[in-house]
């Protein structure tokens, strides 16, 4: 596997502009059809990324975390996501980024990361596999502090369409995230969580500008999150909340988490903005089950924390 070291975290705005060119009519539409799908065989890394207090404070405020001496458990996603997008906008990435859906995310938080630390961040794409509705692959991010692996994340993405006809439908019930849950080694999985079954902990009014606010903090200004107007060309009637914002907000609601822990989330229906959602949680012997759902019980997100 090749490795590329970048001097600094790439700017997401430029990467999205590059990705946007891929969906313009002038180019042969959609994915590259020549040859079987493959992923870039490259690990991209940025050394010595400073985690600065102001960014952490902004992130904490948007997501509902308390500002503390260690970063919120989901915060390092901001460091790794641009690297994953960088890989997904390369010419040897054979799907179009903007048609790719984030269906699941697993974070393994090994150690607290102090605000103000400098960390090494790397990302790679892995495990391309056929899915009944297209192809799935993982964006794997690793964060190291003083040489130790302190945080890792696996984001499972689905590229819809081009379904390989040889693939049988899976029998999972957790929507597009089904075969992620089956891959976990821990006893309790996100597939065990029935979002409609969890006791309600809170009712959130998710404001219409949360996509813009999270976009400003994370740099992830994907048009589907910004406004109804910019989301419509991508098939959404309104802007939708960032999946990783809803994961972060759901975790902020749990309060303190003992590390190390693993946090698995499956994303279901997007949270249309603005909307009122139910937050549901249950303490488990080894952590938590939690969900965000519509008031009719249909799930936006289901998750488990295991320690």
């Amino acid at each position: 596997m090749a490795s590329v070291e970048l001097p600094a975290t790439p700017d997401l705005g430029g990467l999205y502009a590059r990705a946007l060119r891929g969906v313009l009519p002038s180019r042969s539409s959609g994915d590259h059809d020549d040859g079987p799908p493959v992923l870039p065989d490259t690990t991209v890394s940025v050394p010595d990324v400073a985690i600065d207090l102001d960014t952490v404070a902004d992130y904490a405020r948007v997501c509902g975390f308390r500002l503390d001496s260690d970063v919120p458990v989901t915060h390092p996603h901001l460091l790794g996501f641009p690297l994953a997008v960088w890989l997904m906008t390369r010419d040897d990435f054979r799907f179009d980024l903007l048609g790719t859906v984030h269906v699941a995310n697993r974070i393994v938080a090994h150690e607290p990361i102090p605000v103000g630390a400098n960390v090494d961040v790397s990302a790679r794409l892995a495990d391309l596999r056929p899915h009944r509705r297209g192809w799935q692959f993982d964006a794997v991010v690793e964060v190291r502090h003083d040489g130790r692996l302190v945080w890792e994340s696996t984001s499972t993405n689905l590229r819809r369409g081009h379904s390989p006809r040889t693939v049988q439908d899976h029998d999972g019930q957790a929507g597009d995230a089904d075969d992620t849950s089956g891959r976990t080694a821990s006893a309790r999985t996100v597939a065990d969580v029935d979002p409609a079954d969890l006791p309600m902990t809170g009712r959130w009014r998710v404001p219409g500008d949360i996509g813009r606010r999270y976009g400003a903090v994370s740099g992830d200004r994907n048009p589907i999150h910004l406004s109804a107007l910019s989301a419509r060309p991508f098939g959404f009637p309104q802007a939708i909340a960032h999946g990783m914002w809803s994961k972060a907000a759901a975790l902020a609601g749990l309060g303190r988490l003992d590390l190390p822990c693993t946090i698995d989330v499956a994303f279901h229906k997007p949270v249309l903005l603005p909307s009122t959602v139910e937050y549901a949680t249950r303490r488990e012997p080894d952590g938590w089950s939690f969900a965000l759902r519509r008031r009719d019980g249909r799930p936006h997100l289901a998750g488990v924390v295991t320690t």
Partner: peptide
């Protein structure tokens, strides 16, 4: 950037 809540909890 810290609130009373942040500091008291710490």
């Amino acid at each position: 950037r810290a609130s009373n809540h942040d500091m008291l909890t710490a």
